[in-house]
């Protein structure tokens, strides 16, 4: 077992454990924190795969921006109390079993992927495609059109924030 495998194992266990904690935590704030841990574990995987750019962007975007917003909203709503009433235990169990079955089916379907063939190995710690220079070059040549188009997405999200967040004048008059 070399260091890479060790790291892979550790990160995987961490990722799955914290994902499980995310789902099972009663307190939403804990869920957020566990999700952040998951993101870090996944970022670790990216670094193992030498996808440095994505590793960093993952942290900046997900951990640094998205999860802050989540935390923010949860704190604003003061959801720290365990407001979620106890759900039917059986339903929970059913959900878990259904998920497990889904996993089993998917894995069983995909187990045929030949893991012995050298082409079916993910290259670790090598290859420069994950470096920002290469990604940038590709992004601004081949993928420049979708890149530009994705700005539309942000514009609409921006408008959305305005439309949904702005206080209605009539509303104030009513209160």
């Amino acid at each position: 077992m070399n260091i890479i495998e060790l790291l892979f194992g550790t990160l995987s266990v961490l990722a799955i454990f914290s994902a499980l904690m995310l789902v099972t935590s009663k307190n939403p704030v804990y869920s957020v924190l566990w999700l952040i841990v998951t993101f870090f574990a996944i970022s670790g995987h990216y670094i193992l795969l030498n996808a440095q750019f994505l590793a960093i962007v993952n942290i900046i975007v997900y951990a640094g921006a998205i999860m802050v917003l989540f935390l923010f909203v949860i704190m604003l709503m003061n959801l720290n109390k365990e407001t979620e009433p106890q759900k039917n235990r059986w339903l929970k169990l059913a959900g878990a079993v259904a998920g497990g079955c889904l996993l089993l089916v998917l894995v069983a379907a995909l187990k045929d992927v030949d893991s012995k063939k050298p082409e079916n190995f993910a290259l670790l710690n090598g290859g420069n495609t994950g470096l920002i220079k290469n990604l940038g070059k590709e992004l601004f040549t081949t993928y420049v059109v979708p890149f530009e188009i994705s700005s539309v997405l942000f514009l609409s999200a921006m408008i959305g924030a305005v439309v949904l967040g702005k206080k209605e004048k009539q509303n104030e008059a009513a209160h």
Binding site: I56, I60, G64
Partner: peptide, 8 residues
């Protein structure tokens, strides 16, 4: 970017 990520 690391600086930036840590700041975030």
């Amino acid at each position: 970017l690391i600086v930036f990520s840590v700041v975030s």
